[in-house]
Amino acid sequence: MTYKLISNGKTLKGETTTEAVDAATAEKVFKQYANDNGVDGEWTYDDATKTFTVTE
């Protein structure tokens, strides 16, 4: 399945996607992506749209 990340960081804003077997796997990928880009904030997940959002 395709999962989307919306980043509302102070230094990184935008969207990216990943293919993953489940939401937990996608979350690990996205949290590593955010960490690699210096984004640390509040996370939410919408199962209906398969979208994670991180806001700093």
Results as ranks from 00 to 15, higher is better:
F52E: 01
F52D: 00
E15D: 06
E56V: 11
T53D: 01
E56R: 04
T25F: 07
Y33W: 15
Y45K: 01
Y45R: 01
T55R: 06
V54N: 01
K31Q: 08
K50G: 05
F52M: 01
L5C: 06
N37W: 12
I6R: 05
T17P: 02
A23D: 04
K10L: 13
Y33S: 02
V39M: 12
V54K: 01
F52Q: 01
D36G: 05
Y3F: 13
Q32M: 09
T44H: 12
N35A: 15
A34N: 02
F30K: 00
V54H: 03
K4G: 03
S7E: 04
G9V: 13
G14E: 13
D40Q: 14
M1I: 14
T11G: 11
T11S: 12
T44F: 10
T44W: 07
T53K: 06
A26M: 02
A48Q: 10
V29A: 08
F52Y: 05
T2A: 05
K31S: 03
I6N: 04
T18S: 04
A23P: 09
V39W: 14
A24D: 10
Y3C: 03
L5S: 01
A34K: 00
M1E: 13
Y45L: 02
D22A: 03
A20I: 02
T2K: 09
E42Q: 11
L12A: 08
S7A: 14
A20Q: 07
T55F: 10
D22Y: 03
Q32N: 08
E27W: 15
T18K: 04
K10S: 11
G9H: 11
V29I: 15
E27V: 04
T53F: 12
G41T: 02
T55M: 09
V21H: 12
D47K: 08
T55W: 12
A20P: 01
V21E: 11
T25A: 13
T25Y: 06
T17G: 03
T17K: 07
K13S: 11
G38A: 06
A48C: 10
Y33R: 03
D40Y: 15
K28P: 01
W43Q: 01
K31T: 05
V54Q: 01
T25N: 07
G41S: 02
T49Q: 05
A24C: 13
K50Y: 08
A20N: 03
F30G: 02
F52T: 01
M1S: 13
